[in-house]
Design a binder for these strands. Structure first.
Length: 124
DNA sequence: TAGCTGACTCCAT
DNA sequence: AATGGAGCCAGCT
């Protein structure tokens, strides 16, 4: 009970959720990329932590597409065939992202935010 | 407060 | 392409 309130007040987590909300349907980003774009360079592991604590209701009345974040090798980070792995894979496939085994072709599907999106971020 | 942990990365094999 | 080790660091106990 108290814990969830603490999480909702963690400014780093909130910034990470907001950045993840910018990833367009059909694309993915890496943990390190989200950390950088959130102003938290070098803290890729924190992104994983924050995504594990996304409120079920989303953030700011909008969903947080946690499943669009994968590791720098282009793979889903959950253990193969685990429940979380299968769920993430399904949601990405619903986005028309092609997955071979655990791997996604980053050159083809990695989100490349444009200047307008970055400027939007700076307004926070 | 002091360790411990891990939805990470980089680099070498 | 797959695997392992070292480094990393905020959050958690």
């Amino acid at each position: 009970m108290v814990k969830s309130i603490e999480n909702l007040n963690n400014p780093n987590h909130i910034r990470i959720w907001q950045t993840v909300q910018l990833i367009p349907r059909g694309f993915v980003a890496t943990y390190g990329q989200i950390a950088d774009l959130s102003g938290l360079p070098g803290r890729a592991r924190l992104v994983g932590k924050a995504l594990g604590k996304v409120p079920k209701s989303g953030w700011n009345n909008n969903p947080v597409p946690w499943f669009r974040v994968i590791n720098s090798q282009g793979k889903i980070s959950f253990p193969i065939e685990s429940e979380n792995f299968l769920r993430q894979k399904q949601l990405l496939q619903d986005d028309q992202v092609v997955i071979i085994g655990a791997r996604i072709k980053l050159p083809e599907f990695q989100w490349q935010p444009d200047l307008a999106e970055l400027l939007f971020r700076l307004e926070y």
